[in-house]
């Protein structure tokens, strides 16, 4: 009998190392299902009853399937849906940015906004009507400015002495014009007043 117990103890150890075959395990189940078990092995009785039948009952009570086997399958769909949703969101974003740019262009900033021209007492505020006139005026003003600049430039280009002479000559010419407007007998006295002599 002790030989049999020794054999069973050996099977027991190999069972918990994962080394027994199906056949050997059936032997273990039979042994622990019986009544002839030495005291020190008795506590294994429920353990082997579990491996023989309890395990299956538990699995059947759970789901009948390993707990997570279906998990990736269920997750695959929402992921695809998220991709579609992301695509739609991106499209909506692109469209709204395009619309924004388009509207911006339509309402482009008008520098002449609020300008008006008064013609024969009527105030014209329609910018589309007065725009050509405003632009022509601005062109003229710019040309004027340009000419003034050119004059200043030519003045500053020549040396200071000749510049003073030029100015003096111009003043003299203007004085002469003013004096010429007066009758001959007054010219001498006017000249004296203007030239401060």
């Amino acid at each position: 009998m002790t030989d049999r117990y020794k054999y069973m103890e050996d099977l027991l150890n190999r069972f918990f190392s994962g080394e027994t075959s199906n056949e050997e395990e059936r032997e273990l189940y039979r042994f622990f299902a019986g009544e002839d078990i030495p005291a020190h092995l008795r506590r294994y009785k429920p353990v082997f009853s579990y491996f023989e039948s309890g395990l299956e009952k538990e699995l059947n009570l759970l789901t009948g399937e390993p707990a997570e086997a279906a998990e990736p399958f269920r997750r695959a769909m929402p992921k695809r849906r998220i991709r579609i949703a992301a695509g739609m969101a991106a499209l909506a974003l692109i469209l709204s940015v395009a619309a924004l740019l388009f509207l911006r262009k339509a309402n482009a900033f008008d520098p002449y906004e609020g300008s008006y021209i008064v013609r024969s007492g009527v105030r014209i505020t329609d910018t589309s009507l007065i725009r050509p006139e405003i632009e022509a005026t601005i062109q003229k003003a710019l040309q004027q400015e340009e000419r003034a600049n050119r004059l200043l430039l030519s003045l500053s280009a020549s040396n200071p002495e000749t510049r003073i002479e030029q100015i003096q000559r111009r003043i003299n010419r203007q004085n002469e014009e003013i004096i010429n407007r007066f009758p001959n007998e007054m010219k001498e006295s006017i000249r004296r007043i203007i030239e401060n002599k």
Binding site: Y50, G54, E58, L61, A67
Partner: peptide, 8 residues
């Protein structure tokens, strides 16, 4: 219940 809790 005890059958249920071991392998889980």
């Amino acid at each position: 219940t005890h059958v249920m809790r071991i392998i889980a």
